[in-house]
Computed example of a mutant assay.
Amino acid sequence: MKLIGIEEHFLTPEVKDAWSTIGLDAADPSVAFHGGPLAKRLADLAEERLALMDETGLDVQVLSLTTPSLHDLGPESVELTRRANDAVAEAIARHPDRFQALATLPVAMPDEAALELERCVRTLGFKGTMLCGRVGHRNLDHADLLPIFKSAAALKAPILLHPRAPEKAVRDAYYSGFSPQVDAAFSCFGLGWHYDAGIQFLRLVLAGHFDRFPDLQVILGHWGELVLFYAERIANMDRVSGLAHPMATYFRRNLSVTASGIYLPHYLEQAARIVGHDRLLFSTDYPYQYRPGRDARRFLENCGLDKAATQGFAHGNWERLIAGLPQPA
């Protein structure tokens, strides 16, 4: 059974240098997480990555630039984005059966970002895009960023909402007071990342993006970035939201959920209960959650779904989600 991982990351040396140039490590503690052994795996788009895919049982990786992507760069990100996307397109051309991609966008320049998404889909054959939370101090529902969502909806290109570190004021208020290492972990992969990503999705719902663009499709990793576990509580906002539909409708119509390497069947069951089996997607969150021993394939084989639902989870739901994309020129 073909197994596609839709949240699998890379990082180019040029992007890493751009982060360093603007001193992003001082504002975003997650920048420091991309060094050491992870740096080599993030940079490699060839034989080592393919070998580790084979080892864990993954047939296809959908590549995306790791968090915080280019959300903190200004006009200089336009050309940087094009070069990153072109580099990934070259890797796909070398291994078309093993790699797909989500577009990197110059999100601080929304009109240019919308055009780059169109180029990536229509010319390079990419399958959507990934956004990493806030753009500077703007949440994703900010009116300035509407061109990106309008373009994605028109292209039928899904958007993966990836976590990023909360703002410094939030980190100081809720995630500080321990050692620097604990503070950074607590505010990022320990918990803060996931609250931030889930909140970004809820902001898009409450801002009316899915009423404005009913076909817009969003993906949350890590089994729904916490919000699925509070879906019943979140539904109480129906009394005040003023939206066209109940909150539950947007969970089942506009949201898909992926594993991100968290291989827990009871999380899968909860996600299926809220969004439906046809909106479950597989991912390993490479290289962050990589574990040896055919880990991905073993979870698929023991996830508890029937054959049809397992096929959907493994590849069919993703293929259906991207079926409406324009064919590359």
Rank of each mutant, 00 (worst) to 15 (best):
A152P: 04
A152Y: 01
A152C: 00
A152M: 02
A152F: 05
A153M: 06
A153I: 06
A153Y: 06
A154D: 15
A154W: 02
A154M: 09
L155S: 08
L155P: 00
K156E: 14
A157F: 01
A157P: 00
A157W: 01
A157H: 03
A157L: 02
P158M: 03
I159H: 02
I159D: 02
I159M: 04
L161C: 03
H162M: 13
P163R: 06
P163K: 00
R164W: 10
P166M: 06
P166Q: 11
P166C: 07
P166F: 05
E167P: 02
E167R: 12
E167G: 14
E167S: 14
K168Q: 15
K168A: 15
K168Y: 08
A169V: 03
A169H: 14
V170Y: 08
V170K: 11
R171M: 14
R171V: 12
D172G: 08
Y174T: 06
Y175T: 04
S176R: 11
S176V: 06
G177K: 10
S179E: 09
S179T: 15
P180D: 07
Q181L: 12
Q181D: 12
V182K: 13
V182Q: 13
V182A: 12
D183T: 08
D183Y: 09
D183L: 05
A184C: 08
A184L: 01
A184H: 03
A185K: 08
A185M: 12
F186D: 10
F186T: 09
F186C: 03
F186N: 07
F186V: 09
S187M: 05
C188E: 08
C188V: 10
C188T: 15
C188N: 15
C188P: 06
F189E: 13
F189N: 13
G190T: 08
G190C: 09
L191P: 04
L191S: 13
L191G: 10
W193C: 02
Y195E: 09
Y195H: 13
D196G: 07
A197T: 13
A197R: 04
A197Y: 06
G198I: 01
G198K: 06
G198F: 01
I199P: 04
Q200S: 10
F201H: 12
F201C: 09
F201A: 11
F201V: 04
F201E: 07
L202Y: 08
L204N: 04
L204W: 12
L204I: 05
L204V: 07
V205L: 13
